[in-house]
């Protein structure tokens, strides 16, 4: 499981599958209710000029999360694109 990223580290339009949500996140319940569950597919759509919040496509709806909150969601990238990705996850 080397290609696990925090959700906020993904680049715009990148997508992946949720591996898990960190146990300490006080938002776990809320995130589950919004559809951020293990195995669900997420895609990054938009990013605020300052980098946070970012808007995600999850189960056909668009939800914005602040990066602090998104960082507790761990993502397995859809394809192994590590060679293509920039280190900081900025869209290339």
């Amino acid at each position: 499981m080397s290609n696990l990223f925090s959700l906020n580290e993904l680049a715009t339009n990148e997508s992946g599958e949720i591996a898990y949500i960190h146990k300490d996140s006080i938002m776990r319940h809320r995130l589950w209710d919004l559809g951020f569950t293990k195995g669900a597919k997420v895609r990054i759509l938009y990013t605020n000029p300052s980098g946070s919040p970012r808007a995600y496509l999850i189960r056909e709806s668009v939800i914005a999360l602040r990066n602090e909150d998104a960082s507790s969601i761990k993502i397995e990238l859809e394809q192994n694109r590590e060679g293509v990705r920039n280190e900081d996850g900025v869209n290339s």
């Binding site: 938002m27 809320r30 919004l34 919040p53 668009v62 939800i63 914005a64 999360l65 909150d69």
Partner: peptide, 9 residues
Amino acid sequence: ASSFTLELP
């Protein structure tokens, strides 16, 4: 600031 979620309809 606490966490928050915002749906963009």
